[in-house]
Design a protein around this nucleic acid. Structure first.
Lengths: 226, 226
DNA sequence: GTTTTTGTTCAGCTACCGTTCAGCTTGATG
DNA sequence: CATCAAGCTGAACGGTAGCTGAACAAAAAC
């Protein structure tokens, strides 16, 4: 999941960036509203975390401008816990709101909920045939047995599963799995796909992930494509 | 278990701090409501003990303000044992109430109960396969044989066991085992985990505690992950 | 004051995982 | 069929998170 972070306070920004990366997000940290706006319009994020008090363009304004052109879910951060801010925040188009200080766990839970809601899912648990993935625990089960995936393998699979049936290009995957400026001509994705297929279904490797030559990959439980 | 103590009377504060530390809590002592509020919002405590008569912000007010943003269990202390205070205390959002003077044992028992209730447990005894832990006696048994753990080894294990299946990061562990300002880059936790594993299952060291690279540790009786 | 236990630090090691690469297979196109 | 590009695959590399044994320090027990 690729995440845009806009927070001017340097220490907090770095801290959040680190913590969110630990949670598995590809984080692009920005330190002012201009930079944030530029990135938000330029890049296809899965979610944005924006501080209210920002130099150049303040949080509310930033949210409005992003919303004018994009629909990505936005969570607002604020030091002030006045209810007016909350109202203004939600009016400006933010989807959720969190008052500082807060625990990273709570932020993570809300981000999970936002992303889930945005993708039209209400259940953190997704099942496809005998494959079941719990997005809260980052746990994948195949016929109830836990499948041991590495961090990147899991991220790859989660992104595919969140867009079932849809063809996902390799560049789309890299853009969502990695922060900006990643070497484009590499075959990492192919390698991860290979390893995923191996772990999920060694005998029939295209059981869950099919290749669409020249376009990308498609996740589809073979129970579905009858 | 990390505990916030807010008590203005200096002698009592120090005394309580010492006694509670003996009971195994990581205690952050505060001497006024402001300091207490700041810490309560900043840090993720497992429980708070707050005196009613406080300078700057009084106990009731403090509880309300903490409750506005946090859900941690709170126990109120008061010199006056008037029933009005009790009513007001519980109305303000406290979970339990203890009149001075009191025995440290009673305080400890109530804190245990509060923490247990908060984590959704009613039984002080927890069992996982052949491992059994009594949180009242701080006693761990493996196949009915007592396992001799040092104070910190026990605290580490208890925290893990109170969050089964969940991945606990090393920073989360340090934050809950130690009072504030603890050196972050140290490998104490790794050492304790090693010693715990050694004591619990020398042959198969990941039997109860598994490592999730880059994320933390997970307690799970291997009977569960079938 | 001495001994023993417990907590913390350190240095070297291990194993894992992200990444790269070279060679191969597959499928499209003429 | 030959050619070419896209994708597959097994192996190998290097950095680093985590492991480990021992030494050291601090606290507790005696």
């Amino acid at each position: 999941m690729r995440l845009l972070l806009v927070e001017d306070e340097k220490v907090l920004n770095q801290q959040l960036t680190k913590q969110l990366r630990n949670k598995g997000y590809a984080v692009d940290p920005c330190y002012d509203g201009e930079m944030g706006l530029f990135n938000a319009l330029e890049i296809d994020y899965d979610v944005a975390v924006i501080d209210v008090g920002l130099p150049k363009i303040d949080g509310f304004e930033l949210v409005k401008r992003i919303r004018a052109q994009k629909t990505l879910p936005i969570l607002l951060l604020t030091a002030r816990d006045h209810w007016q801010d909350k109202v203004e925040g939600l009016n400006s188009g933010a989807d959720d709101y969190l008052a500082k200080p807060f625990q990273i766990e709570e932020l993570n839970a809300r981000l999970n909920a936002l992303i889930r809601r945005n993708k039209g899912q209400t259940n953190p648990q997704l099942a496809f045939g005998d494959l079941c993935i719990n997005t809260n625990l980052s746990e994948v089960r195949l016929n109830d047995a836990i499948v041991n995936l590495t961090a990147f393998e899991y991220k790859t699979l989660e992104y595919l599963i969140r867009h079932p049936q849809k063809i996902i290009s390799k560049t789309e995957l890299t853009e969502h799995l990695y922060a900006q400026d990643f070497d484009r001509d590499s075959n990492v994705i192919e390698v991860f796909i290979k390893r995923l297929r191996q772990k999920l279904s060694p005998e029939q490797q295209d059981k869950y992930i099919q290749t669409v030559r020249g376009q990308g990959y498609r996740f589809q439980s073979d129970a579905d494509n009858a």
